[in-house]
Design a binder for these strands. Sequence first.
DNA 1: ACAAAAGTGAACTGTACAGTATAGTATGAT
DNA 2: ATCATACTATACTGTACAGTTCACTTTTGT
Lengths: 199, 199
Amino acid sequence: MSNQKKNKTLKERDILEGAIKVFSKNGFDASSMDKIAEVAGVSKITVYNHFQSKENLFQEIVSDFLRQSDEKKPIEYSKTRSLKEQLLDFAGAEMYRVTEPRQRGLSKLLASVFLFKPDFVKKTMTGHKFHEDFINWLYAAKEDGKLKFDSAELTAQIFYGMVEGCLTWNVLLTDGESLPYVEPVLTEIIDVFLCRYGC
Amino acid sequence: MSNQKKNKTLKERDILEGAIKVFSKNGFDASSMDKIAEVAGVSKITVYNHFQSKENLFQEIVSDFLRQSDEKKPIEYSKTRSLKEQLLDFAGAEMYRVTEPRQRGLSKLLASVFLFKPDFVKKTMTGHKFHEDFINWLYAAKEDGKLKFDSAELTAQIFYGMVEGCLTWNVLLTDGESLPYVEPVLTEIIDVFLCRYGC
DNA sequence: ACAAAAGTGAACTGTACAGTATAGTATGAT
DNA sequence: ATCATACTATACTGTACAGTTCACTTTTGT
C-alpha cells in the first residue's frame, strides 16, 4: 500500500473518530458537519471527500460498530467453571456496550436514531442475531444437566431482558452515573436466573 | 370561567395535542413549530401566544405526562387475589406506557430527549418515585407470608427490569410491532419472579 | 352596538447548517 | 522537475426553521 493510501485511511480514521465523538455527544440531528470536521482536525471538504454525506458517514459508523460487535468471539460453555461465573461473563459482555465510554456513546446514538426510525432498525438489525451464542450456551448447559428450561429463546430473552432492563438502559440514560450501583443488581439477576433455570 | 377563557384552554388543548402528535412522530429536533401549528389547526402565532417557545411547549407536555402518570391510583395488595394476577396488574400498568399509541409516542419522545440530556433526566425525574407502589405491595405480600426477599428495592428493580428489558424497550424500538409477542414473555417473567421471591 | 381579546395568514429577520466552489498548498511518485 | 493526489481555508448557495411583525378578522362580554 502506498503512503498516499496509508495517509488516506489515516484521515478517514480521524474523521470517523471525530464523527463518533460528536455524534455520541449530541445525537445525529444536533451534530453538524462543521463541528465534526473541527473535532476531527480536518477541513470540512475533506470530510466530504471521504464520505458522500452526513447520512453516509453515520451509516459507516453504525456498520463498523455492528461489525465489531459481531466479531467478538463467543463464550464457550465450560463444564468446570461455575454457572454463575459464566453468566457473569455474558452479562459483562453485554454491559461492555455501556460501561466503556466509546461504546456507550455509540449505543446511545444508535438507540436515539432507532426510536424514530423503526424501518432503520429492521434494515440495520437483520442478520445480527444477538442471543445466538447464549442460546448455544444454554443448550450445552442443559445437556450437561445443569440447567432446565423449555424454550431456550424465551430463557435468553429473560436473561438479557433483566440485564438490559435493570442495568443497560439505566446506565445509558444516566450516561454512566449509575455504574457504581451495578454490582449488587447483577448478583441478584444471576441469583434469580439460577433460581428458576438451575437444577 | 368565561367563554373566552374556555376558548383559550380549548385552543391550548388543540396545540398540545398537535404538538404531541408531531413530537411523538419525529422527536424534538425534527419537529418544527410550523408543522405543529398546522397539525393543531392553528396559526403559528397562536402557538406562541400560548407558549413562550418550543422548549416551553415541550416542557409543558412532559410535565402533563408525568403528572398524569403520578395520578394513577395505586394497586392495593389483596389477600384473596392470586399473586400472579396482581403482578400482571403491575406489569400491565407499566406496559400501558407503550401499548397505548399516545403514551408510546410520549415515552419515545421522553426517552430520546433523555438520551442526550442526562441533566434533564435528573431535573425532570426528581420527585417521581416510580416503584413506590410496588414496594409497598411487596411489603404487604411479605407480611402476608406470600413473598420472601431481603431488599424490597432490589426486588422491585428486578421485576421492573424484566418487564422493561424484555418488553417495554422492545415495543418502543419496534414502535409497537412486537406487541403480539408480549404475552408468553409476560407469563414467563411472572413465573421467574415467583420462582425466586414466592414462598 | 362596540370595545377588548384572541385569532388569522403571509411576509419577514436572523441564524444554523448541508453541501459546494474556489484558489491555493503540501507531499509523494515518476 | 513536474504532475497528481490529497489536503487547507474561506467564502458561498440554498434551505429550513425559531421567533416576530403587521394588517386584518372573528368571537365574546357588556
